[in-house]
Nucleic acid binder design. Structure first.
Lengths: 339, 339
DNA sequence: CTGAAAGCGCTTACAG
DNA sequence: CTGAAAGCGCTTACAG
């Protein structure tokens, strides 16, 4: 590959001048013709600055890590797309890693940071009790943005507007006439889980609807945990006429177990889930969801990571575009209003 | 962060010695006590070599790009996991990119390569007519491994054993008594599409079963294309008693459209799809699949990219572990043998 | 066997 | 306003 001295030689100027012209140094006053010669020479040689050299010189890698608990998750693909687009438009590369690289005994992130290979980390904490030593990550002033999990604390955070999502789901059910509404929620030792449950309780109370503890579970967001939640709720006799499921993965488990238990959806129980995915049309019944702005979450996280003062802590909520209800066939009128 | 000269000073040796001890240079004969002092000093200072400096010196970035057409795809998550594990065990980082970064007008990959930011590329071509200028990617001896698409040509390739997968699917159907079997296949201008169709025809003919052109479609692997395929097959009057769907995404579309058209699965038609996903239990009916070794595909691609002579072209098929049939509820006896 | 020195390709204070 | 020079932190041929 051509290097900067090749461009300088072809243009008949110094390497310094080439660097400054190409980087758009505003303090540079060079004649228009010189500038053009430099640009033409760079183009002719298809010059691209060597990343390692620039990185060594500037101490910036222009690379960030995206660390997620589960590449399989319903939310990952859209999140990653949003982050990737924003990163690409800024000339950043995104390195992919699963959260297990962060658990005790793995020095993956420590190495990546120590090697100065990444400038920052976008981190989605796993649901449930954390096995990640967050403190030890805050080494050497590393920029960290925690997404879709924490919403306060010593790290910058970006979260979805969970309250708006939950409200959209509940209001859809209320509009259909439901008054007995349960929640299949996330772990209460994770911030999203607490946030979504608190939002749910607030909306239900505000509407003057009954809150029944046996209609509320907090097993978590996986399909298996959704199954467990449905089993527990069904075992309690008086089951609600509708469920809000705080995550689509769990909702698939809820659907499967409802079917196994002979509960017809939506005839016996209506189900609405947070997060829309492309295959929601192929579940049975096709599941009604609330589409959350995951792509924007990813993009915002990249922006927060790179913009502004690295030492300032910000806590953002992505509230635009608003959650959108996607009505499919898992929600209907409540049982008692049928005949 | 500590640098090599800090370690050298603490250990009382030269930077050269530190570099050689830490990199395990075999030609180095240093006293055991010196070696220990160096290692102890590096540990004490938590020394990690600066990646940019090493990269600049060695002209190796120890980073590879994983370029896939669709992060949303049913196959991506497992593929990425396998690649990531293999990469992490080799101290490589994986940069994520969607194939649209490669289409005309985008110079993303050219930049990444030109900047010497990546050592190689694992590339899954999009299904359908290629909009990617493969030739122009072969710049500066870049290592490229094309996966799950091409199986010959000027680039090294790694593919799944599509023939074994298709055979597993067909034999499951034959064992249930099906003789009228169709294929919902991929585009015939993509290599996987051709490979899977050819395998299907070979197995069907070998079994002495009839081949009917109207039972075979080649719309592609997306959910929407699966819908179109089911519509076309259903419109043809004599529909087969079973379908092999060459990709799970398409199978979800097939299921949805079968339901819309009033075709009961598996009572009226059995469906078996290539690729298993975690949410297959939540489709309706839960879909019978053939699990392909996608994780191994990813790992093998990383190995092929990094090992051996960069200029040699290899064409590999991942045939271990073998495709595994996962029987769920979308397959049953054929219609006529029911009563 | 070990260390001093060169050099990878940039950017940027500094001198002219 | 422009260029020469230093230096980012490594690795490795070379000299001793």
């Amino acid at each position: 590959m051509a290097k900067i001295s090749d461009v300088a030689a072809l243009a008949g100027v110094s390497a310094s001048a080439v660097s400054r012209v190409l980087s758009g140094d505003p303090s540079l006053r060079v004649s228009a013709s010189t500038r053009e010669r430099v640009i033409a020479a760079a183009k002719e040689l298809a010059y691209v600055p060597n990343h390692a050299a620039r990185s060594l010189r500037t101490s910036r890698s222009r690379t960030i890590a995206l660390v997620v608990p589960d590449v399989n998750s319903a939310v990952f693909a859209e999140l990653a797309s949003g982050a990737e687009d924003e990163a690409a438009s800024r000339g950043l590369a995104i390195v992919l890693a699963r959260a297990e690289r962060l658990t005790d005994g793995s020095d993956w992130l420590r190495r990546m940071l120590g090697e100065a290979r990444i400038d920052g980390v976008i981190l989605q904490l796993p649901d449930g009790p954390s096995t990640i030593d967050l403190e030890s990550m805050a080494v050497g002033g590393t920029r960290i943005v925690v997404i879709n999990s924490l919403d306060s604390g010593q790290f910058s955070t970006v979260v979805l507007d969970d309250a708006a999502g939950i409200r959209t789901a509940v209001e859809h059910l209320r509009a259909a006439g439901h008054t007995e509404i349960g929640l299949v929620g996330g772990h209460q030792d994770s911030a999203t889980g607490r946030r979504r449950e608190a939002s749910f309780l607030a909306v239900i109370r505000e509407a003057g609807l009954p809150v029944r503890n046996q209609w509320i579970t907090d097993f978590g967001y996986s399909g298996a945990e959704g199954r467990a939640a449905m089993e527990v709720i069904a075992a309690n006799g008086a089951i609600p006429t509708a469920l809000v499921v705080a995550n689509l993965n769990a909702a698939l488990g809820v659907l499967a177990t409802a079917s196994t238990l002979g509960l017809r959806v939506p005839t016996d129980i209506s189900i609405v889930a947070l997060h829309d995915v492309w295959y929601a049309d192929a579940t049975w019944p096709p599941i009604t969801t609330v589409r959350m702005p995951l792509s924007q979450l990813g993009a915002t996280a990249v922006a927060r990571l790179m913009d502004g003062d690295p030492t300032s802590i910000t806590h953002d909520t992505v509230s635009s575009p608003e959650p959108v209800l996607v009505v499919r066939q898992s929600t209907d009128l409540p049982r008692q209003s049928r005949k």
